[in-house]
Amino acid sequence: METLKQELKENIVEQLNLEDIAVEDINDNDILFGDGLGLDSIDALELIVMLDKNYGIKLSDPKEGRAIFESIEVLAKYISEHRTK
């Protein structure tokens, strides 16, 4: 699980172009959207694509992402339970 969390942090920083945020600055329970990392709606769509591309998880309803993308902790748990690759 720790490896997955680290991988997610690295992917989020790189794929969402978070130039001002270092991987080590992201805590497992930090809120990803809103006042947390400040991700926006396009970032949410990018994360949905990342779930599909990297872990074979298809979210048919983007609203599902609201709960899944709460934090690295929640996201890693969801991926480990649903991944197909």
């Binding site: 396009i42 769509l45 990018e46 694509v49 599909d52 591309k53």
Partner: peptide
């Protein structure tokens, strides 16, 4: 086939 929303916009 993984188009990026961040590129598409």
């Amino acid at each position: 086939y993984f188009p990026s929303p961040a590129v598409f916009v």
